[in-house]
Amino acid sequence: MRRYIRLVGILFKFKLSRSMIYSGNFWMAFIVDFFLFVFQLVAFVSIYQFIDTINGWDLNQMFVFIGTFSIVDSMAMGTFFFGIINLPEKIRTGSLDIMIAKPIDTQFFVSAESFNPGSLFGIITGSCMVMYGLSSGGYVVSMIQVLGYILLLIMMYLLFYSMMLIVRTLAFIFVKINTLTQVEDSVIEFAFRIPGTAFKGISKVIFMVIIPYGLIATVPTEHITNMLEPSQWLIVTGITLFFFGLARFMFKFGMGRYTSASS
């Protein structure tokens, strides 16, 4: 375990050095993420000028939601996101070969290989937004609640990771999965950026359980704004563990079917 932590440190240092070589790209990641954050904020503030709540959520809760979304999204973008989205290309071109030959877990190597330090700034802006929403909404938050919120953020980060990885492991079988990743992009746009409370009936089952992107920013928000029932912790933990296990299984299954590419 210590070895893997050291490796994360080294890979992060390398990516930071690399990012600083291409300073334009480094600041671009920060600027793009910041503007996405602002656009989302402006969109919801505009909507709330005409209504008081969206299915029971007021503007302050929405601030917490946007902040939470921004934190999880930045954690993902700053760590595994670019490594995972490159997996199908590595499978198609055979560049995964060199990674498989290294004496470390290949899934770990693929996931940790493309850190994007510039994106991590979003954690700060997201946290500020969460604190602003909580403060202007008059929420009194205990230390236990904060720890629970952090735990849920980590779980949702793992869920996001698992969902992305599961889709891309299909490249071990089909090689090209562009259509599938485009569908996934749309689902993320639709289900991840909109509070889960907006889903009803069958859409709730789909986006909160089957492809649970709807949980990712919603559940920590509900917890910190006192809306999450204790029983939901069990469901969320179960869903996270299930998808994390499924992602691991799919990766291992895919590795057994890996055919590389002609040299």
């Binding site: 390398f14 690399r18 070589i21 291409y22 004496p103 040299s263």
Partner: peptide, 19 residues
């Protein structure tokens, strides 16, 4: 096992291109 061997592929690099 993987610690006991090395593989060098003329057309695939293990070096970090920008560093």
């Amino acid at each position: 096992f993987r610690k006991k061997y090395a593989v060098i592929m003329g057309q695939k690099s293990q070096l970090w291109w920008d560093l």
